[in-house]
């Protein structure tokens, strides 16, 4: 996928007229076609080209795609419940071809748990990030668009959620409302939306008084329509970057909750596996190590993709 985009996007560069006759007397007409060529290029291709130039982001993307593939393939490779006992407990990895990653303290196939755990992790990460984005964009946009006391109140609320220690809040929610995947997802979303709200607010504040918004207002467009239809698309790039980074922190939160044994007991999860393997670190430390590496690679990949998105979407903000 990345190969085709890069070969597509390099062609307009190669054919751009910048290499012809550098010593021409009048430099002005020389510059314009290059700029025009830059304009004509589709913004999506442009974005892909910038993203593809960043090797770390590409590595991250490949890892994320691999994770998605594992998550999608899990029900086909391991159609049975991954939490059922299939063999002798504490089989080390690479000792039995049936269980490439070994078995845990109860004799469950670690590979199956990891594969199914990828589904849980991705689902919770994605939906928590979506929840956080919805709340964050809603709060930030409303605060910035209306200003005044609305802004004041909403920013105090944002501060409130920033102050409450997030894991403790998640645990409280899970304790009061019950240990289910849905509650965990929403709780994670509720503790991670604050940076998105702040970012959205800043972007909206910058855009609110621009001419095109004032024109819409003069035309009698409604507030909601201006916010969603006119300002939001322009404010979106940095929000997308933050949302992608929120997926990473959601994965970390979810793993922590499952590790503490407060995850959904009916679902395979990486954090839960680490939590259960914790008692066996003297004899079988691999039970903890394997899912931990999976979490680390996932978060690493998501962060790399997020950084790559940041560079590609906000070229101005780049270091050099």
């Amino acid at each position: 996928m990345s190969l085709t985009t890069s070969s597509l996007t390099t062609s307009p560069l190669a054919t751009s007229p910048s290499t012809t006759s550098p010593a021409a007397p009048a430099p002005a007409p020389l510059v314009t076609p290059v700029v025009l060529a830059g304009r004509r290029r589709s913004p999506v291709l442009d974005f892909c080209r910038r993203f593809a130039r960043n090797p770390a982001a590409l590595v991250g993307l490949v890892l994320v795609l691999a994770l998605v593939a594992v998550a999608l393939a899990a029900p086909y490779y391991y159609p049975r419940d991954p939490l059922r006992i299939v063999g002798r407990p504490e089989l080390w990895p690479f000792t039995n071809p049936r269980f490439p990653l070994g078995t845990d303290s109860l004799g469950r196939d670690i590979a199956a748990v990891v594969a199914h755990g990828a589904r849980t992790t991705l689902m919770i990460g994605l939906f928590a990030s979506l929840t956080a984005t919805l709340i964050g964009v809603g709060v930030g946009a409303t605060a910035a668009y209306f200003g005044g006391w609305v802004d004041e109140v909403l920013m105090r609320v944002t501060e409130l959620f920033q102050t409450v220690p997030n894991i403790i809040f998640i645990l409280t929610v899970v304790a009061v409302l019950g240990q289910s995947i849905g509650n965990i997802t929403i709780a994670v979303g509720v503790v991670t939306w604050t940076p998105i709200a702040r970012m959205t607010r800043a972007e909206f504040l910058a855009l609110r008084d621009r001419e095109f918004v004032q024109a819409c207002r003069a035309m009698g467009m409604g507030d909601v329509r201006i916010m969603l239809g006119e300002i939001l698309p322009n404010a979106l790039p940095p929000v997308i970057v933050l949302s992608s980074l929120v997926v990473a922190s959601a994965v970390l939160f979810e793993s922590a909750v499952s590790f503490l044994g407060l995850g959904d007991p009916n679902v395979a999860s990486w954090g839960g596996l680490i939590g259960q393997g914790r008692t066996l670190i003297r004899s079988s430390w691999y039970i903890c190590a394997v899912p931990g590496v999976a979490i680390m690679l996932t978060v690493l990949a998501l962060n790399l993709v997020g950084d790559g998105l940041n560079d590609a979407l906000n070229p101005k903000l780049r270091d050099r």
């Binding site: 590790f259 670190i281 190590a289 680390m296 978060v299 690493l300």
Partner: peptide, 17 residues
């Protein structure tokens, strides 16, 4: 980049090991 991606509880277990 690595320490930023490692879950703290897992890092703790690994350090303990």
């Amino acid at each position: 980049v690595f320490f930023f991606a490692a879950p703290t509880f897992w890092l703790g277990i690994m350090l303990m090991i």
